[in-house]
Simulated assay, not measured.
Amino acid sequence: MTGTVAADSTAPTLIASAQRALRLLEAAAHYPKGATAKQLARDTDLALGTAYHLLRTLVHDHYLERHNGLYVTGPAVAGLTRYDVPTAGRARLKALLGMLADELSAAVYFTWYRHGEMEMVEAVEAPGAPLVDRDRYRAAAHATSSGKTLLALMTAEERRDHLARYPMVPFTPYTLRDPSHLPLLPRQGPRRAVPITQFQEYQLGTAGASVPIVAGNGIGAISVSLPMAQAHRLTGIAAQLRTRLGDDFAAVVFGI
């Protein structure tokens, strides 16, 4: 395993299809009475054929429902926001995070925000890239890349409430302490934004980067961490993470 990310055009696209499916879910959530495939394709800048393919998958897995040619969010969206992950889904999620960890040579995490709490749903380390300390993770949204991503996606009221319960205490000398310095992301199309990073803010000797996941009213993040000695790799890995998730990962995110 090398220390760089291979730019192999034959490799599976591990992020792009998930992004497209999530964009369709976001768009559908804005039409309580339903929207046509053409409307959703137009709203998400997707080719109509691509939209139809993903819509069929989302309907099959009950994340969308189709009534009289209109698509509306389905019962599985509520299940995702409740973070009700069955054992089989968790196993698939861990396997795919492991594939990402192996490809990127970095520790990979899937974090979800539910009931006002930041939950590390699953995490997989890589050789030379151990997992960060999980004991303080829930209280460290301001100090981790995934936590800062979740805070960036929250409303101002949600952010104030979270920081009131979990103040911005210093975990290291580099921890961000001022709420006004926290990044912000729009709920619409957040994956087009630059990945959010942290350098030794949560744990000395460790750097991380994160991209957002939005499904219905639920918010989450896929993130990576590396030893500071490999921090020069983070920009490239974060860019690849932002542009590459894929069909298998989408199936796990939407099918758990």
Rank of each mutant, 00 (worst) to 15 (best):
residue 126 A to L: 09
residue 36 T to D: 04
residue 235 T to C: 06
residue 66 R to V: 06
residue 33 K to D: 12
residue 17 S to I: 10
residue 193 A to M: 09
residue 227 P to I: 14
residue 188 Q to Y: 08
residue 11 A to L: 12
residue 79 G to H: 03
residue 11 A to K: 13
residue 63 Y to F: 10
residue 40 L to V: 07
residue 203 Q to N: 10
residue 173 P to T: 15
residue 202 Y to V: 08
residue 140 A to P: 11
residue 253 V to C: 02
residue 83 Y to F: 15
residue 187 R to N: 09
residue 5 V to L: 13
residue 170 P to H: 03
residue 131 L to P: 06
residue 255 G to P: 04
residue 225 S to C: 13
residue 228 M to S: 14
residue 20 R to L: 14
residue 48 L to C: 08
residue 142 H to D: 13
residue 129 A to V: 10
residue 247 D to T: 07
residue 54 L to C: 07
residue 39 Q to G: 08
residue 5 V to H: 05
residue 211 V to A: 07
residue 165 R to M: 09
residue 86 P to S: 11
residue 90 R to M: 14
residue 131 L to F: 07
residue 86 P to R: 07
residue 184 L to T: 15
residue 174 Y to Q: 15
residue 113 Y to N: 00
residue 130 P to S: 11
residue 116 G to M: 06
residue 126 A to K: 01
residue 131 L to R: 06
residue 128 G to D: 03
residue 186 P to K: 10
residue 182 L to G: 05
residue 144 T to L: 05
residue 18 A to S: 12
residue 205 G to P: 06
residue 234 L to A: 09
residue 241 L to H: 07
residue 22 L to E: 12
residue 36 T to A: 05
residue 85 V to A: 09
residue 29 A to H: 04
residue 82 R to A: 14
residue 109 Y to R: 02
residue 49 G to S: 14
residue 50 T to P: 01
residue 136 R to I: 13
residue 103 E to A: 06
residue 206 T to E: 03
residue 120 M to C: 14
residue 12 P to V: 09
residue 226 L to S: 00
residue 155 T to K: 04
residue 198 Q to P: 07
residue 148 K to M: 09
residue 123 A to M: 05
residue 185 L to G: 01
residue 71 Y to F: 14
residue 94 K to G: 07
residue 195 P to L: 01
residue 10 T to Y: 15
residue 90 R to H: 14
residue 108 V to Y: 01
residue 125 E to Y: 03
residue 224 V to M: 08
residue 228 M to D: 11
residue 189 G to K: 08
residue 205 G to F: 04
residue 105 S to T: 09
residue 164 A to Y: 05
residue 89 G to R: 04
residue 85 V to G: 06
residue 135 D to I: 11
residue 206 T to N: 01
residue 121 V to F: 05
residue 17 S to Y: 00
residue 7 A to H: 15
residue 159 R to E: 14
residue 147 G to K: 00
residue 22 L to Y: 00
residue 256 I to N: 03
residue 71 Y to C: 05
residue 255 G to C: 01
residue 6 A to V: 12
